[in-house]
């Protein structure tokens, strides 16, 4: 089973998680930008974080045979903090980088005017940089939040076919599917979706344009939930091909809209004149 986790916050995970993910079949992932578990106090804090998503995390992932891409944005929560909003002016230069395959995660948290502005501005950035957008739907007041999110996407210059609406569930999937957006589901141990309910939704709404992620972050989460969904699908009678569609080909198709998704060999890992071949020496510097 090959797995592409389309939404996982690896900077909040340990290196052991990378190993377990690789063993479970994860070969590629996208890490969207979000918060740090506690509020940022300045723009520089974002810049260091973006640099990590463009440097250290891809390196850590590659050490375990996992290809790492990222989505960059001002997250919905911190769009409300005037100390953070000026990062919008820095995004332009970051969104040009090779391994950025989407603007995200953007969307609503508390549905404030500040969030309206950040969402609209960043949907436009996605248009300007020819990137798709990963749009988080709010956890509180979710149904209304999804409706409003779809309205804002429709008012933007970004076509719904270039938008992934994430954190969907039973109450929001129909509206999201009608919108023409891609459908993302976060599978968690005890919030959001679980694998049994996920399989039920796949039965009801089909596998087309559906992406499943573990979103694993600071909360109680499990980076192997994508694998668990694949197993639950097989147990329910879905074919290997259907599992592959949901866990690999759909995320590949969505992020390929960026024109930058690269799942090929990384020359810098193995071939660069033997220079970076590791000798198996300790890496505890």
């Amino acid at each position: 089973m090959r797995i592409f986790d389309p939404h996982i916050h690896m900077s909040s995970r340990t290196t052991d998680d990378y190993r377990a993910m690789r063993d479970a079949g994860v070969r590629a992932l996208v890490e969207p930008a979000f918060w740090l578990g506690q509020p940022r106090t300045n723009v520089g804090s974002f810049l260091d974080y973006f640099d990590a998503l463009l440097g250290w995390e891809p390196y850590r992932a590659a050490e375990h045979g996992i290809t790492h891409h990222c989505a960059l944005a001002l997250n919905p929560k911190e769009a409300n903090d005037p100390r953070c909003v000026p990062v919008l002016a820095e995004l332009d230069r970051y969104l040009r980088k090779d391994s950025v395959v989407a603007v995200g995660e953007i969307g609503y948290d508390s549905m404030t005017p500040a969030e309206d502005e950040a969402l609209a501005a960043q949907l436009q950035l996605a248009v300007d940089h020819e990137l798709p957008a990963l749009v988080h739907t709010p956890h509180r007041d979710k149904v209304a939040g999804v409706t409003r999110t779809v309205d804002v996407v429709r008012e933007s210059a970004l076509p719904t076919e270039r938008v992934l609406l994430d954190h969907l569930n039973e109450t929001t999937v129909a509206a999201a599917k009608d919108s023409g957006c891609w459908l993302g589901f976060s599978v968690y141990p005890d919030t959001k979706m679980d694998e049994t309910r996920m399989v039920r939704l796949l039965r009801e709404y089909g596998t087309e344009k559906v992406l499943v992620n573990s979103a694993a972050d600071w909360g109680n989460s499990d980076p192997l939930k994508t694998r668990r969904v694949g197993e639950a699908m097989l147990a329910d009678g879905f074919s290997d091909d259907e599992v592959d569609l949901v866990l690999w080909r759909n995320p590949v198709a969505f992020y390929s809209l960026s024109g930058r998704l690269d799942l090929g060999e990384r020359p810098e890992r193995d071939d660069y004149a033997g220079n970076v071949l590791r000798r198996g020496a300790p890496a505890d510097s």
Binding site: N275, A281, P282, D284
Partner: peptide, 12 residues
């Protein structure tokens, strides 16, 4: 020493 500790061969 950094090379030694991070596994970078000294030929680099």
């Amino acid at each position: 020493l950094k090379c030694v500790f991070t596994g970078v061969p000294l030929t680099a």
